[in-house]
């Protein structure tokens, strides 16, 4: 088997206080579609920060695409939680997606023609090419989520990280979203943080459960016992919470 695209070995990481991540070891192979679940404060977003090189682990080793997170950064697309954005920012859909070209394009003056072509292609992939000129303030939550995905696609990533992409989406928009991710998974590795355990298991190839130290590789379908062990109590309902 080829070398994993993400290798985390014995990671400890935190923000000055107690470690949020404790002894986390996880390998992600090329072409995987990994669902990352776990309770609030379980370290899912922190894990993304470590992979992106935004947070240096206090212990342990990170390799992304066979190199350091900082070097691999340009080949990793990141889709943050869309609820955190000031939606009154005066920018069009096309303008947001073009930002994905910043690292690739020369640093001076405007974007090149090929940057624009790539941005348009990304918009077409998420099905929003008609909204290119639309200000972001006029979009629905689901549409804006797709714009952020298009921005990440415009970076032409090998790995795509999505943080709570389905938070605040209605069930139909959520299904559409995961359908899109399934399609993208044909050519890139995808990691997605989510609360909705039952829902993602239909789409992902593997589920990793994260509650500070515990990472279980559930290659088989999720069982009630696994979930109970992770959350510490039985869960009867599919949870639709806000962001964590």
């Amino acid at each position: 088997m080829a070398r994993p695209v993400i290798e985390l070995t014995g990671i400890y990481a935190g923000y000055g206080g107690p470690s949020v991540l404790q002894d986390v070891t996880l390998d992600v192979g090329a072409g995987e579609f990994l669902g990352l679940v776990g309770p609030n404060g379980g370290g899912k977003s922190t894990l993304f920060k470590v992979i992106l090189g935004l947070l240096r682990p206090t212990r342990g080793q990170v390799r992304v695409l066979g190199t350091t997170p900082l070097r691999a950064r340009r080949q990793v697309g990141y889709v943050p939680q869309y609820a955190e954005f000031a939606r009154d920012f005066p920018i069009s859909v096309g303008g947001v997606v073009l930002m994905g070209r910043l690292g690739q394009s020369p640093p001076f003056f405007g974007y090149r023609r090929c940057d624009r072509a790539i941005a348009m292609h990304s918009l077409r992939e998420v099905g929003l090419v008609d909204l290119c000129e639309r200000p972001i303030g006029e979009l629905s939550g689901g549409q804006f989520q797709r714009v952020l995905i298009a921005r990440a696609l415009a970076t032409e990533p090998k790995i795509l990280l999505l943080d709570e992409p389905a938070a605040n989406l209605d069930p139909r928009a959520e299904r559409d979203l995961f359908g899109l991710l399934k399609k993208l998974n044909c050519r890139m590795t995808i990691l997605v943080v989510t609360h909705d355990i039952a829902f993602v298991s239909e789409y992902v190839t593997r589920v990793a459960c994260l509650n500070r130290e515990l990472v279980c590789h559930a290659t088989e379908p999720l069982t009630a016992e696994t979930i109970e062990r992770l959350y510490g109590h039985p869960i009867r309902f599919v949870q639709h919470e806000g962001h964590g």
Partner: peptide, 23 residues
């Protein structure tokens, strides 16, 4: 502003993403 307007815009819109793009 003419030379760096894209970077200024990115820093104002989404600092974290700008940093990830090497700005």
């Amino acid at each position: 502003v003419l030379v760096f307007h894209r970077q200024f815009q990115a820093v104002c819109f989404d600092e974290q993403f700008a940093r990830l793009r090497g700005v």
